[in-house]
Design a protein around this nucleic acid. Sequence first.
DNA 1: TCATTTTCTAGAACGTAATTCTAATGAGTT
DNA 2: AACTCATTAGAATTACGTTCTAGAAAATGA
Lengths: 202, 202
Amino acid sequence: MTSLSERPSTTSRKRSILDAALACFSERGVEGTTIQDIQAAAGCSVGSLYHHFGSKEGVAEALWLDAIARFNAAMIRKIETAASGEEAVRGVVTTYCAWTARHARLARFLHSRDIEFSEDAKARQRALHQAYIGRVFELFAPFVRAGEVAELPLHAYVPLISGPIEAYVRRWLGGDAPSPTRVQELFADAAWNAVKGPAVPH
Amino acid sequence: MTSLSERPSTTSRKRSILDAALACFSERGVEGTTIQDIQAAAGCSVGSLYHHFGSKEGVAEALWLDAIARFNAAMIRKIETAASGEEAVRGVVTTYCAWTARHARLARFLHSRDIEFSEDAKARQRALHQAYIGRVFELFAPFVRAGEVAELPLHAYVPLISGPIEAYVRRWLGGDAPSPTRVQELFADAAWNAVKGPAVPH
DNA sequence: TCATTTTCTAGAACGTAATTCTAATGAGTT
DNA sequence: AACTCATTAGAATTACGTTCTAGAAAATGA
């Protein structure tokens, strides 16, 4: 019988490799960091690294998936506590800014364009996204039924709400635009306007 | 055997390398294509390739920059012919969809996350973007003065207008959402709502 | 407890592919 | 022609991702 759960030391080693990888990637980019760099920073051997992640891309993918999962969770948590559609929509925009500022290196990594995903990772990425927008849709459903939020194609909500702030933040991370704190409200307004329905309260 | 007329000029050789690279990248990804692949597809030597582009990344960067320049040019052309602010804003969204559909491979490459830019390329990228939003701002100025388009921070226009459609198209290219033709009008509405000013005509 | 299996770690050896190097070729110039 | 400079060629080199073999550590079972 093979035990499916991993040893406690395994999770911490994996964690240390991911942390080391993030540090290296942030400093030198994915292409720019070698297996040796990660290995040295994590204090583990090549064999250990390959045992856990299979390849350098594997490390990058795991880090990416992990970051997205955490990001999505933060977002869902925020939406769950919103009392109205408007609060939920505005919350998404402000949480986007807050999370990005709080996890700057991770955010930079998520926005970086230098990972080539394997088919397997792409599938998991897709699954995560489907689960995410599924849950978002579920949380918005009551507001949609009440007419507070408009009824739109399923795939339109996320781009309409987070598209602008995402594009802005990308520029900011690239050093091309000032901090989003100043435009945060503006983008929250735009997001709400984009999806608000016919029966807006008050 | 060398009776072939003349040696190709530098520009056309560069062009042929870029074309070959796009074909290879589309088929196998940047990481997945070797210098040999490009070299064979372009019908040139390793030396020639390195002479012109310095590295494999150099080829990818040049291709990226070239594509962005063409994209921006198409966008500017569209905005220039717009008679009203609303027409301009809606034009950006529809042109985004049209250009992407017309240059699918290039668009996919632009949206791909697997290029690591050198500092030099980043600088040129930044310069291109600054020139682009500068020109956009210039073209929108009359509409802003007339109150048809709202007065917003310089860096907010592009994300507000193209952010949502960009996010949607990225999902579409990734196979996660249906063709943008169905949501195009919706996104044009949202874009216009996001930047329209106090004095909207008619 | 000890025997056995499974998971994990180590680091040397390997192979591939990016890059560098040296020499040669062609085009323009004087 | 002689000289230059940009361009091309492909062999030689080097770097780095990955594989391999062996062994240690933890879990399992008697």
